[in-house]
């Protein structure tokens, strides 16, 4: 990917006789392929951003002023996992899943049931909630998998309402009141670092997966499912695998939230869990996996600052979505990546 790329028309019109050119940095070219291990400079160039992310998240809880903001970080982490899940499913499996709330709900209730009724220790409950929850979500959505694009989106969007309706109408699992207290982690440092570790595992794990052969098949389904079928691979089975992997992140978020709030109720199916991750993905940069995480880590505290406005906060997500789609459709991380790898200069035409 060397060479000049012409800059797209920016906000300011180009002056007469000049043109903005975008060029790869020499250092970027020198870090491609085998050359990456040339010297510490090249290695730093490659490892730097990843290290920054890991270290940044590692020290983040220590920098937060008080317990309140540490709790906000926990919630933001859960949203970030949902955003990663959304991004992975939408851009690497081709399933536009607008039902993040269904994952948090199913994962949350599954984990909560183990802790509340069966008195299972929370780490095991969260693990079971994640894995069993993801399996349950995959199983329930299995009949919808042949649907594409907007149809799958509509269907998944309806499921949280359906589940909530069932719980409220039948009065099961705590009904309108919810169930509590659920024995939780009860230690803010564990709560902070658990979600951070899981976030890092999710981001790096999924980024690795989409480059591996198994991930290539998933991406094939997104690009052209007919060709995948013609290659002797079941599209439904492949989508189910992708959905299971994506749901793991979403269901963990739910299981984690239950043990964070020491409470499980129909609020686990709240529409926020479906919508905010999408805004975060658009803001952070679709298809980058790390971008949506950053988006959620910015958007959640921002929405927390606007808590006084109540339900009007939803307007914020909408505004962020519209703003980024209109003015920065590539999203934050794609923009930063470009700045990192390329420089711009004016040349005479």
């Amino acid at each position: 990917m060397t060479g000049a790329t012409e800059a797209t028309a920016g906000a300011s019109p180009a002056p007469e006789g000049r043109r903005k050119e975008r060029l790869d940095r020499g250092l970027k070219v020198r870090t491609e392929g085998l050359y990456a291990v040339n010297s510490y400079r090249e290695i730093t160039y490659l490892v730097g951003p990843r290290l920054l992310l890991i270290l940044g998240l590692a020290v983040l809880p220590l920098l937060l002023p008080n317990l309140y903001w540490q709790r906000v970080l926990c919630v933001a982490g859960a949203y970030a996992l949902l955003a990663i899940s959304f991004d992975f499913l939408a851009n690497y499996v081709g399933l536009v899943c607008v039902g993040g709330a269904f994952m948090t709900g199913v994962g949350g209730f599954t984990a909560g049931i183990f802790t509340y009724y069966l008195h299972v220790p929370w780490p095991i409950s969260i693990l079971l909630g994640t894995v069993l929850g993801a399996a349950l979500v995959t199983l329930i959505w299995l009949p919808s998998l042949p649907l594409r694009g907007i149809y799958f989106a509509i269907l998944t969007f309806m499921f949280p309402f359906l589940a909530r309706g069932v719980i409220l109408a039948l009065g099961i699992l705590g009904g309108t009141e919810g169930l509590g207290p659920v024995a939780g982690m009860d230690n803010i440092w564990i709560e902070n670092y658990l979600v951070i570790v899981v976030l890092l595992v999710a981001v790096f794990g999924l980024r690795r997966l989409v480059g591996e052969d198994a991930g290539i098949v998933l991406r094939g389904v997104k690009d052209n499912d007919m060709a995948v079928q013609a290659s002797g691979i079941s599209v439904t089975r492949t989508k189910a695998k992708g959905l299971f992997i994506g749901s793991l992140a979403g269901c963990f978020a739910g299981a984690y939230i239950v043990h964070l709030y020491n409470f499980m109720g129909t609020s686990l199916f709240a529409t926020d869990y479906s919508i905010l991750p999408i805004a975060a993905a658009v803001m952070g940069g679709s298809g980058t996996l790390a971008g949506p995480m950053l988006g959620a880590l910015i958007l959640t505290p921002l929405s927390e600052l606007l808590r006084g406005f109540g339900q009007l906060r939803v307007v914020l997500y909408a505004l962020v979505l519209v703003g980024f789609i209109l003015f920065k459709p590539e999203g934050l991380l794609n923009w930063l990546t470009r700045k990192y790898h390329q420089f711009e200069k004016w040349t005479k035409v």
Binding site: D213, I216, V217, R219, G220, K222, D223, N224, A227, V228, S231, I233
Partner: peptide
């Protein structure tokens, strides 16, 4: 083709 993949990666499927 699988547009987001390199040509040879298309055959991985």
């Amino acid at each position: 083709p699988y547009a987001t993949l390199a040509a040879y990666k298309n055959l991985i499927v």
